[in-house]
Amino acid sequence: MHNPFLGKDVISILDFDRKALEILFEYTDRARRYLNTKLRVLEGKVVALAFFEPSTRTRLSFEVAAKRLGADVIGFTGEEAISVAKGENLADTIRMLNSYANLIVLRHRFEGAAKFAAEIADVPVVNAGDGKQHHPTQAMIDLYTVRTLFETIDGLTYAVVGDLRYGRAATSFIYGLTLFKPRKIYLISPPLLRARPEVLETLRMKGIPFEERSGIEDVISEIDVLYVTRIQKERFPDPMEYEKVKGSYRITVDLLRNAKPELKILHPLPRVDEIDFRVDETKHAAYFIQASYGVPVRMALLTLILGGEL
């Protein structure tokens, strides 16, 4: 089998095509058999987790994935504990990690940080979130979840709801869908938080049918996959504006009355109050299943990049 991930950086989901993702998904299916096993697939390898920004899920799932595969893990979270607090730049930190590890997982608040790191490092760099731009491994998990729930990613109607301007998970999910053939994507957000011009340009260039809207109610009956993200209060210059819009993007049992029975709700988590807790008990809620795929997808990815077998 040709391994399109071997030795590769993972900066954006757009660095790959659907064929590559299908290989990743097959590996993920296999990885799910080993969730309670300590493997020796990556024995002798060191994975560095460089999290310049806080993270719970992404960091821990990378750590568990690497450890399940038998790799050693080094790393840090936050800038205070490391030499960055003394004024070290990103380039020097990456050079150091490059000499210690076989792979670097990086999260940073600047857009393009992972790409820059990949230019400096000889070892592969995996982007675990760069500012508002990309979160490719989250998109891999999201697409895998859809594939598992619907047995296809093509031909479905999607709605991506929330902060489409600053939300990297939403952006990467939209980019990821452009590698497939969605029937239509609704981009639903307050006008202030619309998807960025380059995202819309990508959708146009790839010929994906999409529509920008401000409300969910009118389209809820058409949707197969509802991808919900958090709207952060701090994005609004005026707190009153936030108070006005926040309720309109809340997913409730009431709203779902008009939904298709097979509609599934995804959320990259953490959620605050954008999905009512009562929705958790409905058959629409798929976000905890989605979260559970974080480890096997990352196991599959690390295995493929580092040339292991599952």
Binding site: G87, N89, L90, A91, H108, R109, F110, E111, G112, A113, K115, F116, D130, G131, K132, E201
Partner: peptide
């Protein structure tokens, strides 16, 4: 973009644009 890595101080990086 103020939070583009090319605008981070003290990094050995040059801006790069591709013509669309």
């Amino acid at each position: 973009n103020p939070t583009c890595i090319t605008n981070k101080s003290r990094e050995p990086i040059k801006t790069r644009f591709v013509v669309i």
